[in-house]
């Protein structure tokens, strides 16, 4: 069970980073909604797991956060990508693409005709 969660968290982290890269600074709720929208609502983000993931990324130095004011005048914590975070997005994107490419090849050859 723990392993599956790790993979999930790993992908969640990449999604968070990618979202921040395309959208610029964003608060947690915004990030969550954006991920759901991008995935065509086929992914459900457990919001409760999002915040520890954000905290972890911040502790690792990939993102930074500050208090700001949201579109409808609420105080909210805004996350933005750091330089290290930008590099991390590139690296992880590449790795992810490689992995999926390999997996895709693997799955097509294995399939009996």
């Amino acid at each position: 069970m723990g392993e599956r969660k790790d993979v999930w968290q790993g992908t969640l982290a990449l999604m968070v980073l990618k979202t921040l890269e395309t959208m610029g600074p964003l608060h947690g709720y915004g990030i969550a909604r954006r991920i759901e929208q991008t995935s065509g609502d086929s992914l459900v983000v457990q919001y409760g797991t999002l915040y520890p993931a954000l905290l972890k990324l911040e502790q690792e130095g990939y993102i930074a956060s500050d208090w700001g004011v949201s579109e409808n005048n609420r105080r909210a914590r805004y996350y933005r990508l750091t330089r290290a975070g930008r590099k991390q997005v590139e690296r992880e994107t590449r790795e992810w693409q490689e992995t999926t490419a390999i997996l895709a090849r693997f799955l097509t050859t294995e399939k009996p005709s």
Binding site: H27, Y29, Y47, Y51, N72
Partner: peptide, 12 residues
């Protein structure tokens, strides 16, 4: 941390 969660909740 609590405040952040509260703000999330109210947006939602």
């Amino acid at each position: 941390l609590d405040e952040e969660l509260e703000s999330h909740l109210s947006m939602h």
